[in-house]
Amino acid sequence: MLVSAVVSVVISALILVSLLGETFTFVKGLAETGTWSSLWADGWFPRRGQYSVATLLMGSLIVTLVAMAVAIPLGLAGAVYLSEYARPSVRRLLKPALETLAGIPSVVLGVFALTFISPEVVQRFFEAPQANLAAAGLGVGILTIPLVASVSEDAMRSVPAALREASYGLGARKATTCVRVVLPAALSGLVAALILAVSRALGETMVVAIAAGGSAGALFTADPLRPGTTMTAAMIAQAGGTDQVKGDALTFQSLFFVGTLLFGITLSLNLVAGRFVRRFRNVY
């Protein structure tokens, strides 16, 4: 059984090996041909040798910001209600609903973002093409609601009842108790929920690949109403070329370079979130 536990370590090692090998080739290729400038090109067009990392990072940032604007208020409201207000019978009904939302595959949300959210929500209020970063961000946000809700609910439920009772005893109303006593007491758990949600949104792939319209590459844009691409979607867009490497010599390797970037960012976020969770566990 030790062997099966060690399998997970082997998987981690293999992830690193498979990412770093070709990433090294990519960086070495750039160095040899002296084409570092392709990293600051006008857009992400790997088949033409334009690897503007800024385009991908900005796309990921926009999608994540839009997603958080949806997931944090809705997820947090759900968590506070389920943890502080809902009667057990209501909880038993609503919690499975949130869990069902968590179980919906991301491709489904991608199609929903492209065929419903974009025309019915984004295009109704703004001038935008059907595939745009905002619609993708809203889709990713919906996917992250359950994560925010469940992590922050766990955090609030582990705040001792004595804190609430003391607050009531001092004459605080229920809403005051929630906002000024329970939420601050659960703060590090809520921060963990936030960081995990950001990490999840950054790593979300299919919604952006389907709904953001960047499958053929994208120009740099900071406008959420324009088509764009993210680190994840750029990787999927290139996967069709894994057997038939066309275009620039380093096209194939750039896939691994982006993978390494994404892996590094999400891993650091997860490590920070883990630290917050542990701090929270130590207090209560």
């Binding site: 536990a5 060690v6 997970s8 370590v9 998987i11 981690s12 293999l14 992830i15 090996v17 498979s18 990412l19 090998g21 070709e22 995990l196 990490s199 999840r200 950054l202 790593g203 979300e204 792939t205 994840t232 990787m235 999927i236 996967a239 894994t242 896939l255 691994f256 993978g259 994404l262 892996f263 999400t266 891993l267 976020l269 997860n270 490590l271 883990g274």
Partner: peptide
């Protein structure tokens, strides 16, 4: 402790990255 931390971090690795693992390995 290393295995436990490792498992927790693996759970947070984006699914596309597993795609790279699968393709290479």
């Amino acid at each position: 402790r290393f295995i436990e931390v490792n498992v927790r971090n693996l759970a947070g690795v984006p699914s596309v990255v597993y795609g790279i693992l699968g393709f290479t390995i």
